[in-house]
Design a protein around this nucleic acid. Structure first.
Lengths: 218, 218
DNA sequence: TGAACCTGACTGACCGGTCGGTTAGTATTT
DNA sequence: AAATACTAACCGACCGGTCAGTCAGGTTCA
């Protein structure tokens, strides 16, 4: 292998994390070898453990990195909208970006959930992930409650249920034979059902979930 | 090892599946070895591949077995109740049996979801799992709609959302630091939120989710 | 300026251990 | 005795982790 060009430590680590993410989302946590990750990042295997203490530690940092970046993007998307209903729509749009990105993220996420359910180091990161979501979700709900648009009792519980609908629908979507063709339907339904749940019976502003927004995000 | 007593093929296979289930739920799919399963079932390793073509095939059959038995138990629980609201409660009670059983089942289930998202043989079983759930869930919803108790538009979509709330809350629960102590809360909230979602605003029969039912099923 | 020296990122061969799967042989049943 | 059920030793592939060595790019010193 031709010697890889020099990078800063941060760049190298990030490149390895990105490579690991793609490998994990394709093959699954335990099917990925250190060699796979190194190859994908264009370096030799040895360097992977030069930057990370162990494979497990690399995965943990990958999970942290994913968690942080998804949090940041959710906050950003939500902050860009004024109206609570629009905030929910922005969140759905972010979480359902496109079939391929969706699949990539959720495959990795499910793997991490499996790890979290058994190993405490991972569980902690997962706990932090859900804590961040709770923060974001309940913030939206609270605003909607204050404005009288969302007719729920408890902002934390409603936020948690909203998140459960996201995750639960995603799991159903992943079991579809042809996920790509059912993707738009799931996304639309997710938005509709969450808004229905939050706003109570009937349509939102007369056209809940009807209005377009059906293009595939790049 | 003292030679294991003779059993019929069906008995042996079932014993191996049960052993595999316990191992998988503890350690996770890819951390379990054929030796682990054999030891747990009290037989030698060789016998595992005498009854199953490969490890992968054993896992696939395990998934089928789990799927079938959970379907059967859900149908039974639902059939035992008349009232749609009671049916929902029965379903929640079945799905949230106890912290330990819950953890065992859901850990294995998450692992299988991870597999399903990548390997088609597993995906098909998962698809069947969700198809069965859809059948059961939408049946309940339909009855509730007919009786005018559930104010949803579409029985399939509402059933799917209900299932999403189950799965999504379960994933959140698994990330808790002390799942055992938060279990009852999740279960109660699951029941409450689903009924709220299905029946629309306000309480169900005046005491939605309030009424006891807080013992820990054995 | 340039030669000698140093540093640390990087490579790839290697090792110990593990695990899925095979098989030769033994016990049990019919 | 023939078939079946089962064991235990074994094989070969694979993988996480280690490590001796390489090389590019400074830094020091003449």
């Amino acid at each position: 292998m031709p010697r890889a060009a020099h990078f800063t430590e941060a760049e190298r680590r990030l490149a390895l994390l990105k490579a690991a993410f793609r490998e994990v989302s394709e093959k699954g946590f335990s099917e990925v070898t250190l060699d796979d990750i190194a190859k994908r990042a264009g370096v030799s295997k040895g360097i992977t453990l030069y930057y990370f203490d162990s494979k497990e530690e690399l995965y943990r940092e990958l999970f942290v990195w994913l968690t942080d970046s998804i949090h940041a993007r959710m906050r950003e998307a939500v902050a860009a909208e004024k109206d609570p209903v629009a905030k929910v729509r922005a969140l759905v749009a972010l979480i359902f970006p496109s079939p391929s990105k969706n699949r990539a993220f959720f495959r990795a996420f499910i793997d991490f959930c499996g790890l979290s359910a058994r190993r405490d180091g991972f569980r902690e990161v997962n706990e932090r992930f859900y804590a961040g979501c709770r923060d974001i979700d309940s913030g939206i709900v609270e605003e909607g409650m204050r404005q009288g648009v969302f007719l729920v009792r408890d902002r934390l519980e409603a936020g948690s249920t909203m998140r459960a609908i996201f995750d639960g629908l995603m799991m159903q979507w992943l079991s579809e034979k042809d996920p790509d063709s059912t993707f738009a339907g799931y996304r639309e339904r997710c938005e509709r059902e969450i808004l229905q749940y939050l706003t109570g019976r009937g349509s939102v502003g007369g056209d809940a979930g009807r209005a377009g927004r059906r293009e595939e995000a790049k």
